[in-house]
């Protein structure tokens, strides 16, 4: 019988530890599929963040090095500058890339580093237990914005991807979501394009992925997926933000 679905070669046969309905397992799989498809498994180096996805190296079967919280773009820069013909990507959450690591990310993009950032936006600090993130939307209740995020007290949601698009060195930036099969397919295409942009040595590429966090949002997996489409997407609309590749 013809085999139509199997584990990508770049994914280890380890069961995911992520919560039910979490987007990380889907995104890990999509990244692994793209690495397989491009045939770059043996020359790819990944840099996971501090956060839920720090354990990405337990699943992705490529060389991987942890970075301190927020510093993935700087670590990836160091790796890439030494090994110019390798594919180097970071995998970061919203707190990692858009709060503590803002400077590293903006400057890597502005330098046009030939790296790719997979930016998983779930509007909350997941691993630490659901605190307010830079991407928490107004009114959203978190453990550190108990009455809902109020702009004068807590600031506004930060659209890092739009900010990065201004940088001259960024070449391809797209926002997608993994809340629906259609969104997952679009995410796959975007990640593929981001890696190809790097392989063609064109500059900095980033895919922001809106991803549900049912546990910290205190929702069921289906409610969380719906919330991504209904609420998060209003503030962070999925679209190609920059494409000069």
């Amino acid at each position: 019988m013809k085999k139509v679905f199997s584990r990508p070669e770049s994914l280890k046969p380890t069961p995911f530890h992520y919560c039910p309905g979490c987007g990380h397992s889907i995104i890990h799989r999509v990244v692994a599929e793209v690495i397989d498809e491009l045939g770059i498994r043996e020359r790819t180096i990944g840099v996971p963040p501090a956060g839920c996805a720090v354990l990405a190296y337990n699943y992705l079967d490529v060389d991987m090095a942890e970075a301190p919280h927020g510093r993935a773009a700087a670590v990836a820069t160091g790796i890439k500058r030494v090994l110019l013909d390798r594919v180097v990507f970071t995998y970061q959450g919203d707190g990692d890339i858009a709060a503590i690591g803002t400077a590293e990310t903006i400057h890597a993009a502005n330098r046009g580093e030939r790296i790719t950032s997979i930016f998983v936006n779930n509007a909350v600090y997941g691993m630490t237990g659901g605190q307010m993130a830079p991407t928490t939307i107004l009114g959203q209740v978190t453990t550190t914005s108990p009455g809902g995020r109020a702009p004068l007290r807590d600031g506004n949601p930060l659209d890092l991807s739009e900010m990065l698009a201004i940088a001259a060195g960024s070449v391809y930036i797209e926002r997608t979501s993994v809340s629906s099969p259609k969104g997952i397919l679009r995410t796959r295409r975007a990640i593929r394009k981001a890696f190809v942009t790097q392989l063609e040595d064109k500059g900095f590429s980033l895919v922001e992925i809106l991803s549900p966090c049912p546990t910290n949002w205190k929702m069921s997996p289906t409610e969380a997926a719906r919330w991504v489409d209904a609420r998060m997407s209003e503030i962070f609309p999925p679209k190609v933000i920059k494409d000069v590749a």
């Binding site: 180096i45 840099v47 090095a65 970075a67 301190p68 510093r71 700087a74 670590v75 990836a76 820069t77 160091g78 790796i79 890439k80 500058r81 030494v82 090994l83 400077a103 590293e104 400057h107």
Partner: peptide
Amino acid sequence: LASINMVMGAAIA
């Protein structure tokens, strides 16, 4: 901060 983390990346490589 960035420079010491770039050092880290280069050492990793």
